[in-house]
Design a binder for these strands. Structure first.
Lengths: 121, 121
DNA sequence: GTAGTACGATGACAGATGTAATCGATTCGA
DNA sequence: TCGAATCGATTACATCTGTCATCGTACTAC
């Protein structure tokens, strides 16, 4: 459960988080954009099951795969890792960095402003 | 130069960014905290040189290794990747997420507020 | 009932990564 | 001058990742 999830695996998790329990087949359809074969999707699902990130429920002859870990938990972990590694654990430099690089639109900035106001309560 | 830099390699880059050109020996001393042998540090430096992330300048019988890529460029790329992957490319949800998880101290929030004010000019 | 089809399981394989030992050449100290 | 120390280079090797093929089995449609 504390296992890392690779980037390809993350894509698979995404559809499970969005679409709830799915068969491998259905997941593959949902992942058509990735250009993977069904075999590849099955491998990724197996690996996710092996590391306890998804559960398998028998549904006749096949499995329904459902996410076990919450998206937010993984996202939190990965964000933390990045912020620790790249910005000494502080979020402000990250935001400053994104801003500096023009990665923030004025809409983003407005949104952030509202968020900050909210956080200050 | 567009090659990714692994996590272990990043640690090596850190000392090069901080300490300027260094010999493998000196870098290893600087990285003592990682619990790596000198051999490991040398391997990482070679790999970084192979992918063009550091330059090697002969200094007598050994090399001085210096960073070629800017820290900010790598950080930007990695941040972007993470934000794209986890938050649909928008920074606000990342900040909101960190806030939600209590990852932001009130000092952080104050800092962010100041930053936002600045960004609005 | 048998030929195809659809499952999950298992095996494959190359490239990246973490971690390190060893090697051939050189230099330096005694 | 000769052995020790030190370089970078080469080799090693297990694990992880991306990507997929194959296999044994069970069902489905004729």
């Amino acid at each position: 459960m504390t296992e890392r999830i690779s980037e390809a695996e993350w894509q698979v998790m995404e559809v499970l988080w969005r679409q709830g329990p799915l068969t491998a087949q259905a997941a593959a359809v949902e992942l058509a954009g990735m250009g993977w074969t069904l075999a590849t999707v099955k491998t990724l699902l197996s690996r996710l099951a092996a590391k306890g990130a998804v559960s398998t429920t028998e549904d006749g002859r096949r499995f329904l795969y459902a996410p076990v870990v919450a998206r937010g938990d993984i996202a939190a972990g990965e964000s933390r890792r990045l912020v620790d590694r790249l910005f000494g654990g502080r979020a402000t430099p990250l935001v400053a960095h994104l801003a500096e690089r023009g990665e923030l639109s004025s809409a983003d900035i407005a949104e952030l402003e509202a968020l900050i106001r909210e956080l200050k309560q």
